[in-house]
Amino acid sequence: MRKTLKLSMVMMLSLSVLLAGCGKKDDNAGSTTGAGSDKKVEIGMVTDVGGVNDKSFNQSAWEGLQALEKDGKIKPSYLQSTKADEYITNLNKYVKGKYALTWGIGMSLGDAIKTVAKQNPDSKLAIIDAVVDEPNVKSVTFAENEGSFLVGVVAGKMTKTNKIGFVGGTKIPVIEKFAAGFKAGVLAVNPQAKVYIEYTGAFDKPDLGKTSAATFYNDGADIVFQAAGGTGTGVFNEATERVKKGEKVWVIGVDKDQSIEYPDVTLTSMVKRVDEAVKRVSQEVVDGTFKGGAEELTLKDNGVGIPDTSSKNVPADVLKLVEDYKAKIVSGEIKVPVTEEK
């Protein structure tokens, strides 16, 4: 009887310890789940050949990811492509690495994004400046022609020589939109002006940008708008050298407010809010609301425009005129062309 009683007590004690142990394990599991929910989302970004420090849209895209990183929401990483053959390889490094989202920055990555997206239908990808029709890809484009029209208004009103240059990178639709909108804006306010357009064929050759700018300035142009990524730094370098010698020439920047880096020669900039677009789509991945599809950010969306710092070098009456034209574009009264032919 006593042995039975002792045995029963031992069994009850063992059961109590076991139950207590199970309860503790459940508590730990709960806290582990909580810690897991705080884990930063990994997002990768692949640049085009312009590189992450192109002082243009690659850099702007990276700054968008860095902003989310500062908020503690993501862990970003980037790979720089030195040639087009590296696009698929670089994209696959993130996709195969199970990153939550893989960005391709620039129209030239369109085919690579499509290939990788089709081969990896469970992955999430996004691209700037191109439309990739795959269900797992978010495509973000901008109305560059509308923003370029506005800086064209500035150039048309402020030129002293009636000669204005445009330096583009590769002649692709997105760069042609810049050129077409710019030319339309210039001629809207100054029909006597001449707009000379040249494509260098590269986004990573500052020497080509410098040569193109020198040609324009030597021929009498006093304002040059560049939409050439890293090649565009050469335009700024040429203008800076001339200003130091006493010449009065200007550059219109692109994608970012380039007066921050080139304050002495930047008249204004055609800003594309690539950083905000990258932040917003990346946030959708964090929130679990990401969906494939395409969207274009326009003047109405504040996706393009000119920076507030323009008031440093652009007179108030010209800025007022810019606002007037902006209102007409937003309302639909003015349709800005996307190619020179239209």
Rank of each mutant, 00 (worst) to 15 (best):
S56R: 07
N58Y: 02
S60E: 01
A61F: 03
Q66T: 08
Q66W: 00
L68Y: 10
E69I: 05
E69P: 10
K70V: 06
K70Y: 11
G72S: 05
K75C: 08
P76C: 13
S77F: 08
S77W: 12
L79P: 12
S81H: 01
T82L: 01
T89W: 03
N92L: 07
K93T: 15
K96A: 05
K96M: 13
G97P: 05
Y99E: 08
A100C: 08
T102H: 00
W103P: 04
G104H: 09
I105C: 09
L109I: 04
A112S: 04
K114I: 01
T115H: 05
K118M: 09
Q119V: 14
N120A: 12
P121S: 08
K124L: 05
K124D: 08
A126L: 12
I127G: 04
V132C: 01
E134K: 14
K138D: 00
V140T: 15
F142C: 09
A143T: 09
A143R: 08
E144N: 03
E144S: 00
N145Q: 15
N145V: 11
G147E: 10
G147I: 14
G147Y: 06
G152C: 04
V153M: 06
V153S: 10
V153K: 04
V154E: 13
V154I: 13
A155R: 01
G156L: 02
M158A: 01
M158H: 08
T161S: 15
I164L: 06
I164N: 00
G165W: 14
G165Y: 11
G169L: 05
K171E: 15
I172G: 05
